[in-house]
């Protein structure tokens, strides 16, 4: 009994010093406990570790706020991108109906155009595009094109659109790069941009086959890495003479026959495929960013929960230890007085 009385007296003195103002700040019933924790803790050793945990909690909370905001931004951008996407799909579809898709075409000179994003934090879409680019490069390098050219090794060049793809590909395939375009999404993706870019590419060198690698947007959580193949005018001409699907058509209105039309057709085909690729990739980027930010927000909640539990447990343990110390100290004092 004497032991309990001593403890009450000591605690009573502490609570008296608390005052009404502090009581409000710490809030009602937990006032005394918090007071012990705060006032006595500053000098004690236990607060150093608890302070670290508290700071950690604060930073996790801030990161969570940022990822949540990024998710909201991505969601609103996604909606806009999806609207644009619907419109671009109808541009390339007639081409595929007319010319078919020939992804396995091996030619003397080919160019792979890899579409990636300018900004990161969007899951694995850029790595996927890069992986496909590497795989295609490897696959084409193995081919012997003696049948169509004097030089048995095919020329496989790469053009990269977007900062992230460039950063990855310039490490090991810099020798194959012909040009890279970054920062393209700042003003917006439109057909004028695509025309400009292809104009620059065509000024550099002529190729027999163009391949556009991008992430097709299937749904917010699913993106399909896609390779679209565009044949150049000369390759189309060869196909026409060799009895391809174009043979059924007649070409009129030009003095030079099909050649001139095919040149325009091939360029426009490449532009519409690339335009669609850029928009598909931009939509996938927003979708991937949205789900990536969603999962990191959820992850932050989990971390925060664990940290809070840890923090409270160690705080409670410290309080218990201190109470025991006080009580046993008081008991010793009482015992000495008796």
């Amino acid at each position: 009994m004497a032991m309990q009385g001593g403890a009450r007296r000591l605690l009573g003195r502490l609570v008296q010093g608390l005052g009404p103002a502090s009581e409000q700040t710490f809030g009602g019933a937990f006032g005394a406990q918090n007071f012990i924790n705060g006032e006595l803790g500053t000098a004690g050793s236990r607060n150093a570790s608890q302070l670290a945990v508290k700071n950690r909690m604060k930073s996790v909370k801030n990161i969570q706020k940022i990822t949540k905001a990024m998710k909201m931004v991505a969601a609103s951008k996604l909606r806009r991108a999806q609207e644009q996407l619907e419109k671009t799909r109808s541009i390339w579809q007639p081409f595929t109906a007319l010319l078919g898709d020939a992804p396995a075409t091996v030619a003397e000179k080919s160019l792979t155009i890899t579409v990636s994003s300018d900004k990161g934090l969007c899951g694995g879409i850029n790595s996927t595009a890069v992986k496909y680019t590497r795989a295609y490069k490897r696959w084409l390098d193995q081919h012997d094109v003696t049948a169509v050219a004097e030089n048995p090794k095919p020329l496989v060049d790469i053009a990269v659109l977007g900062e992230k793809g460039k950063a990855q590909l310039q490490r090991d395939l810099s020798k194959s790069l012909v040009l890279t375009a970054v920062d393209y999404s700042r003003v917006g993706i439109n057909f004028s941009l695509v025309c400009e870019m292809i104009d620059q590419i065509m000024k550099e060198k002529e190729y027999d086959v163009y391949r556009v690698i991008f992430n097709r947007f299937a749904s917010t959580i699913s993106f399909q890495p896609t390779v679209a193949t565009v044949l150049s005018a000369t390759t189309l001409q060869d196909q026409l003479e060799g009895g391809g699907s174009l043979e059924e058509y007649e070409f009129e209105g030009t003095e030079n026959g099909a050649a001139e039309v095919l040149q325009d057709l091939s360029e426009f085909h490449l532009a519409s495929v690339l335009y669609n690729g850029l928009v598909e990739n931009a939509t996938s980027e927003q979708g991937a960013r949205m789900s990536a930010m969603d999962s990191s927000t959820r992850n932050a909640s989990e971390v925060l929960e664990k940290l809070t539990l840890n923090y409270n447990r160690s705080r409670q343990a410290a309080i218990t230890t201190e109470l025991i110390e006080i009580i046993s100290g008081a008991a010793a004092l009482e015992a000495g007085n008796d």
Binding site: Q170, S174, K175, L177, V178, L179, T180, A181, V182, D183, Y184, R186, V187, G188, N190, F191, S192, L193, E196, M197, Q200, E204
Partner: peptide
Amino acid sequence: AAREGYSYKLVKWDNGTQ
């Protein structure tokens, strides 16, 4: 007007160098 505006940074590569 929005369909006309574009901007990008073009880098040409020559045998592995930017």
